[in-house]
Structure formats: structure tokens, C-alpha cells
Simulated scan of single mutants.
Amino acid sequence: MSPELQQNKLTINADPDFIVQCLDKLINNAMEFNLKNEPIEVTLRQQENEAVIGIHNKGPLLPNAMSEELLNSMVSVREHKQPIQNAEHTHLGLGLFIAKLICDFHQASIAITNNKEKNGVSVTLRFPLI
């Protein structure tokens, strides 16, 4: 690891497999709702005694008052334009719920909000530093 990266190292007490699963679900979700040809931004920064991970996409905004609801089991805001023909297009509304369970397990928090520019959604994870 380069000295520059080593200086910016943030250490959390976490199960790496759970963290990968959490980020996979969140980034997949961001990609699904992202505008075509727009990048997904993933950030890491330190704020006080926390490692803050941000996942930001440009696309449709969250419906009013859905930020907290989306973290519950079996909740989805996907439009079903036609009857679901195969399992590939089935969404059970569990991805964000699983991400929340992983955060809870690590004494971390997760928040989903419309971004300040009102052109997309931001997910913020806050993990306590050790």
C-alpha cells in the first residue's frame, strides 16, 4: 500500500464479507435507478469518530416520506409496468433491508435521502472507528 493511501486509512471493526454484501446491494440499487451514462459516486471520508461511506447516483428522486420506509423488509418503489414474467425481474424489497441489518450488526447507521441538488439519491453509511 502506498504511503499516501496508508495515511488516509480508516479502521472499523467489521466482517469483510458482510461489508462487501452491503456495498454490493447498495451499489446495485444505485445502478438500477441511475440515469444512463451517469457515474455512480462512492466516497469514503472521516467525520469525527466515524468512517462515512457515501453512494450517490443521479436519477429519480425518492417519493416523499419514503427514506425510512425503504429500509424495512418487503418495501420497494419500483414501477411494475407489466406483469412479472420471470424471477430475474422480481424484487422482494429485501436489498436495503439487508443493508440495514448489516449496518445494525456493526453498530453503524444507514440513511437514504434525495441529494441536495434534487437530481438523485444518496446513501450514507456511518461506521464507528476503532
Rank of each mutant, 00 (worst) to 15 (best):
E32K: 14
P63T: 04
N72P: 06
G54R: 13
Q85N: 05
R45E: 01
K81M: 02
T90Q: 13
S67Y: 06
Q82R: 01
I40F: 13
H91N: 15
I40C: 12
L62E: 09
V77E: 05
V42K: 14
N49E: 09
L70R: 02
E68G: 14
N64Q: 05
N64V: 09
L71E: 11
E50I: 00
H89W: 12
A65Q: 13
K58D: 07
H80I: 09
L44Y: 09
S67C: 07
S67W: 06
I55E: 00
P60D: 07
H89S: 13
L70T: 06
V75L: 12
I55A: 00
P39I: 11
L35V: 03
L71R: 04
R45M: 01
H89T: 07
R78M: 00
I55G: 03
L70C: 08
H56M: 05
N57I: 09
Q82M: 01
Q85A: 11
I53V: 14
E32T: 08
N86K: 04
E48A: 11
L70I: 09
E69P: 06
P39G: 04
N37I: 12
V75N: 09
L61H: 07
P63A: 10
R78C: 00
G59I: 14
P60L: 14
A65E: 12
I53W: 03
E50S: 00
N34W: 08
A51M: 15
A65S: 12
L62M: 14
H80R: 03
K81Q: 05
S67P: 04
A65R: 09
F33A: 15
L61K: 03
Q85S: 11
H80E: 02
K36N: 04
N49F: 11
Q46A: 09
Q85V: 11
E41P: 03
L92N: 07
I40G: 09
L61E: 02
S76K: 02
E79V: 07
M74R: 02
L35Y: 06
H56G: 05
L44D: 03
V42C: 15
N37D: 15
Q85E: 11
E69G: 01
L44H: 12
V77A: 09
M74P: 01
N34Q: 05
N37G: 14
N57K: 08
M66P: 01
I53D: 06
A87I: 15
M31T: 12
N86A: 12
P83R: 10
A87W: 15
N57P: 03
L61A: 02
L62N: 13
G54Q: 13
A87M: 15
L35W: 03
N37F: 15
T43M: 08
H56A: 06
E69H: 10
Q85C: 04
Q85M: 13
E79Y: 07
A87N: 14
H56S: 07
S67F: 09
E69D: 10
E68V: 15
H89M: 10
L35K: 12
Q46N: 03
Q85R: 08
M66G: 01
F33D: 14
H56V: 10
S73W: 01
Q46F: 03
H89N: 12
N64K: 08
L35H: 07
L71S: 10
G54V: 10
R78V: 00
V42F: 15
L70S: 05
Q47V: 05
